[in-house]
Design a protein around this nucleic acid. Structure first.
Lengths: 247, 247
DNA sequence: CGGCTGGTTGATTGGTTTCAACAAGCGTGG
DNA sequence: CCACGCTTGTTGAAACCAATCAACCAGCCG
């Protein structure tokens, strides 16, 4: 998977050849992050836009007494907000859940990029709006879905997002995070996530084994979860569009 | 309260005199919305940026079976995203919780505004980033705070935000929404909100009567809620800065 | 006055957490 | 190579928080 960023951005609008070239240029320098280490910490001054190229990361907040809430998951192609560097202080931390490969785009570089290409600026804005929509949907998930619906919804969302960057193969995708991470993302305990997983398996809806997730009946799963992909704002439906898999 | 938008924006960066004039111009046309009516519905094409000038509104999503989740509250000065018009379809609805006065800025007007004033563009971007942070904090609230902490946290947040636009008077502010609305915002039932409110009252922390909220001990309330206003990203601390009250 | 909305209370049910223990998988070092 | 320790997943029982259901009250308005 050569360039997940461009791969993802094109779902928010067509990329010009010049845009692709410029993007490829800016992504030159890469950084490797070990699993379970912070990419940026709460309170830090964000000077660059981090773009995940490989692996999964998450934004999280930790309360004084240790409670952790994962507020979003960052998959390959996801960036932590194209305009973060305008703030002086991170209000949350970002942590690698698996080994992660990052590209970092410094603020000024980003500003030059969007100044040169109004099209890229437009696409980045739409990406920001889509991220906001995902964040809202997480609030819906936490606020008014039951345990099994939450988990099902997360599976649907992540599968769709992974599919958009060519990281699914039929009904299967990598799913490299622990039940503990799932618990912290869904506002539940890992014990309960474990039992809910078993319910989903027993219903014949999914298989989750050795970090591989398979959706056996995506439609029924979506119905159970009340999942409607509209909020992802992809211009093309990534699942139905049949993206060629390049590994 | 003459111009809550400018009042709010200045917390994200200084406004130039020219900015204020241009803003005042674009806010010329106003719209009155009755309580309990949708300002924009899910599925609609957002052609303008709605700015709340008076009253409270909310973004919400409603599931097929009737469950409603309020995903954010819009107070005077809040806009529903300076760049919404770039999307073709609302993924959620916005509803007036009280009678609301709106200004509507059409997409092209907004684009001209930010093109003319890089400073305004910067300030709007920071506002967008702050809204995203609030949205994340709501996920934290729903995901890992207890009933009483959630309610306390919401009170702290709303009081701080109202204070930023001069809508507090000492420790008191208007609080015009029902326990049912609170329930839908906090992912609980109105019955439980009611009992939690009584706990907060019994602890001597708040008074909430006839749509007026008073915080008797803001610090203790903040501690109970694990409330840290940093995520609001105000350049000046609105509470401590002692904003002059203009009614 | 009647009807409506919003708030309050009690009893019961049920979904989740908590606590505790154990099994399975995996990398490491003796 | 196996033993060891660590992380991750799994299971059971008890405690608890919050939902549900139902009834009732207070205020407001036509």
């Amino acid at each position: 998977m050569p360039d997940p960023l461009a791969r993802k951005l094109q779902h928010y609008g067509p990329l010009l050849d010049a845009d692709r070239l410029w993007l490829a240029d800016t992504l030159g320098v890469r950084r490797q992050i070990a699993a379970r280490t912070d990419i940026i910490m709460e309170g830090e001054d964000p000077r660059a836009v981090n773009v995940v190229l490989e692996g999964w990361a998450c934004r999280y907040r930790q309360l004084a007494d240790g409670r952790r809430q994962i507020v979003s998951l960052l998959l390959p192609g996801d960036s932590c907000d194209p305009h973060v560097f305008l703030l002086d202080r991170m209000d949350h931390a970002i942590c690698a859940l698996t080994p992660v490969t990052l590209a970092q785009i410094r603020g000024p570089v980003m500003q030059e990029l969007t100044a040169r290409s109004p099209n890229l600026d437009y696409v980045f804005h739409r990406e920001t709006l889509a991220s906001a929509a995902i964040q809202r949907e997480w609030a819906v998930n936490l606020g008014c879905r039951t345990g099994i619906e939450r988990l099902a919804h997360l599976f649907c969302e992540l599968f769709t997002r992974l599919s958009a960057v060519g990281l699914t193969k039929g009904d299967t995708c990598a799913f490299p995070i622990t039940q503990n991470d799932l618990a912290d993302a869904l506002g539940q305990t890992s014990v309960h996530i474990n039992r809910t997983l078993q319910d989903l398996r027993a219903a014949g809806l999914i298989t989750l084994r050795s970090r591989q997730l398979t959706l056996h009946d995506p439609e029924r799963l979506a119905r159970l979860a009340h999942f409607d992909p509209a909020y992802l704002h992809f211009t093309v439906e990534p699942i139905d569009a049949g993206n060629p898999i390049r590994e």
